[in-house]
Design a protein around this nucleic acid. Structure first.
Lengths: 193, 193
DNA sequence: CTCTAATTAACGAACGTTCGTAAGTTATTA
DNA sequence: TAATAACTTACGAACGTTCGTTAATTAGAG
């Protein structure tokens, strides 16, 4: 399907150059078309962008949902560290997460409101999933604390820091070192000792 | 000085719209000039951009240097939490940090190499400052651990997560809650108990 | 008079978008 | 089955606009 090829190319250029820096002619050339032909598949640049955005959001959310629905709930250490690994894998094996990150951090100004809604939506859902897990672990005395919100936000902070390092993206060794340090301190901070 | 006014306006538009999305005509209009007049002060768009970039870098670095050279070295808890507050203040009171963050995360493609060098440079320097402090605190048994690199990277992760929340920027309450959680867990993770 | 800063004018190039058209494919009708 | 209608996909050409940049010219200050 040509629409999918177009979205793939668009994803690539939006990720590298941002909304304003990505041109329809470049995207079209990538799939062997003229830019006018894109209009046979999409209403315009905004429509193309928003479809790519929603695909990326869907992919991000479903990965998280699937991971935590299939992970071993009796082992928080493994479950949480495994999620960080998943994020790293996702980021490195396809562009959708990087695209999603770029656009949630720095959305094109005229689509800010739409994007913010999508970002809030996915954040809320992922936070809810994590908070549920942490509440289970607290109840089972597998980690310390009473309110699940504290370890949830703390873990989301670790996720954010991993994402930042991935976005910088130039130094695999540094990523490993920083993840190791953040994880060590985080785990000591929420576990019994 | 008109050059400074131009750089101020450029900072604003580069921050909001990115390099490609910011136009010289908008920047010029902001300071009551025609876009061609910018060329009396700068060689072109790249020159203007790079001067704004280096100003922002200088400001970021000097803030960190100054803070840690004047802070109470006997109280790591206060020193570190104070730095997080400083970052939040800096981010909210002028645009330079947000600009710097945007460009270090997602640089314009044709200036990627130059920017990466600046980013690596400032990161290295700030890491060195922190690592020195942490080594002192470890030696004084104010925090746990042997190698200073672990708490240093862990703290930098907390900083990153704060920056991420600032970039999202839509929810002051959420920033406070997330900072509180990340800080609680981080401090528990590096302190004696 | 000189120098700098700002202007007007103009440049080629690229942008997103629209139009009319020509194929190729699918669906409908006779 | 054959003919026709409708729809999809792609293209050339052109639209008006904006982009960054250069050149020549004017206004103002020391």
């Amino acid at each position: 399907m040509k629409s999918i090829e177009i979205k793939d190319a668009a994803l690539k250029y939006f990720t590298i150059h941002g909304y304003e820096g990505a041109s329809l002619s470049q995207i079209a050339k990538d799939v062997g078309l003229k830019k006018q032909s894109i209009y046979a598949h999409f209403k315009g640049k905004d429509d193309l962008f928003l479809q790519v955005l929603r695909d990326a959001k869907e992919m991000d959310l479903s990965s998280t949902v699937q991971y935590f629905s299939s992970v071993d709930s009796k082992n928080p250490e493994k479950a949480l560290y495994g999620y960080l690994q998943l994020v790293i894998d996702l980021f490195q094996k396809d562009e959708q997460l990087k695209f999603w990150l770029r656009m949630s951090f720095f959305p094109p100004a005229h689509l800010e409101k739409v994007i913010e809604r999508e970002v809030t939506d996915i954040e809320e859902k992922e936070r809810a999933i994590l908070e549920g897990k942490f509440q289970e672990w607290i109840n089972a005395k597998l980690i310390i604390g009473d309110a699940a919100i504290t370890p949830t936000f703390a873990f989301l902070s670790v996720v954010d820091s991993v994402l930042v390092e991935l976005v910088y993206g130039n130094d695999e060794e540094k990523l490993k070192a920083k993840l190791a340090a953040a994880w060590t301190v985080f785990w000591r901070g929420i576990s019994h000792q």
